[in-house]
């Protein structure tokens, strides 16, 4: 197969970027989108031209590293991660536009690579239980109904890729944050910090510059883990619940890393 690619090139953070056009030929329809870019890079190296920078690691849809906007859609046409998008899903000879995830909270580092450290800082604000390493209670002494475990798991499977943010017209991270709050607040182990968790994480989201949710629903539509909008409802409820309860302490100060 062959394709014309319009790829976002940007040398460093803050620099003005532009699209550069490349043509690729002899692409196996079974190649993944990232393998097609590998092949382009191998050729560019031979031509002594600068390769295209993009993030990827596991290449099986679970680590959350890959983060391309393909033809205006985060990750591409099939609601799977960029690494699980295959060339067989594109029309032979077509033009494909490739950009980084777009969000003011995800500055571009180079080309298609962004800094998503803001998501780690949201987790630091409250995305954990307080259990430190040491003797813990026997798990079966605290049974969890399978329906509850299933609901928690449906949220816990978030891979932290940030496609939800890139898809949202407001650049909101509510789906990401809602997934973590839902996972932990549903389980008995997450109860001690429950009142503070949603408030602290939402405050951190605001500090990072993520926008608010106005129910577009684009986040869930591009989420490769198909996380439901329900988690945003849960986040809103937990936030109100926290606010109505005891006023929580201020969250610990976050450091950029």
């Amino acid at each position: 197969m062959k394709f014309k690619l319009e790829i976002w090139r940007q040398f460093e953070t803050g620099e003005e970027g532009h699209f550069e056009t490349f043509e690729v030929d002899g692409i196996d329809p079974e190649a993944s989108f990232l393998e097609m870019l590998d092949q382009l890079n191998e050729r560019l190296t031979g031509e002594k031209r600068r390769t295209v920078a993009f993030d990827s690691d596991c290449r099986e849809g679970i680590c959350g590293s890959c983060s391309l906007v393909i033809d205006d859609t985060p990750h591409g046409p099939r609601q799977v991660t960029s690494c699980q998008t295959y060339m067989r899903d594109f029309e032979d000879g077509s033009t494909i536009r490739v950009e980084p995830f777009r969000s003011t909270s995800f500055p571009v580092i180079r080309d298609l690579v962004t800094d998503r450290g803001a998501l780690d800082r949201v987790i630091q604000a409250g995305g954990y239980t307080g259990a430190t390493t040491g003797p813990q209670p026997e798990p079966n002494s605290m049974p969890v109904a399978p329906e509850v475990q299933e609901r928690a798991m449906d949220a816990a499977i978030c891979i932290g890729c940030g496609a939800c943010v890139a898809a949202c017209p407001n650049g909101s991270a509510m789906l990401f944050t809602g997934a973590k709050v839902t996972h932990l607040n549903l389980l008995p182990q997450g109860q001690p910090e429950r009142a503070n968790r949603a408030i602290a994480m939402v405050d951190q989201m605001d500090q990072e510059g993520f926008g608010g949710c106005t129910n577009f629903g684009e986040c869930s539509r591009v989420c490769p883990q198909e996380i439901s909008l329900d988690v945003i409802g849960m986040l809103n409820r937990e936030y109100r619940r926290g606010r109505l309860g005891k006023r929580p302490k201020d969250p610990p100060a976050m450091r950029a890393q």
Partner: peptide, 21 residues
């Protein structure tokens, strides 16, 4: 101990109908 530790951290292991691991 590892299973106990992970459960305390909120790792949602699969459960049987009675809520047991």
């Amino acid at each position: 101990n590892i299973i106990d530790q992970a459960v305390a951290q909120g790792v949602p292991f699969n459960r049987e109908y009675g809520g047991q691991l």
